[in-house]
């Protein structure tokens, strides 16, 4: 993982752990999907929105729809970060 992807993934991971209270952070790897980690639909949207906010990105919500795992999500955020 290159440094920029790693940076964005760490932001996403922090929000996954924040939203899914009690989840072991070691389980949050980039290949996993939020659903596998136990996130419901509201949790998934929250992780996406909070991550975009923390990164200072204004990403249209509909564009974040369709990310099937954390790698997809990180890729969308990275594209908006212009990196």
């Amino acid at each position: 993982m290159d440094p920029e992807t790693q940076r964005i993934f760490e932001v996403v991971k922090a929000n996954v752990v924040k939203v899914l209270t009690g989840l072991d952070p070691a389980l949050v790897t980039i290949e996993r999907s939020l659903t596998e980690l136990g996130a419901n639909s509201v949790d998934r949207v929250e992780v996406v929105m909070y991550s975009a906010e923390d990164l200072g990105l204004d990403v249209p919500r509909a564009e974040l729809h369709g990310a099937r795992n954390l790698a997809d999500l990180v890729a969308v955020l990275r594209r908006h970060a212009g990196a």
Binding site: S41, V42, R44, V45, R61, A62, L64, H65
Partner: peptide, 12 residues
């Protein structure tokens, strides 16, 4: 429909 997309539109 797509319930995740509907949630996003609802929040929007």
């Amino acid at each position: 429909g797509d319930s995740d997309l509907s949630l996003i539109a609802y929040l929007d």
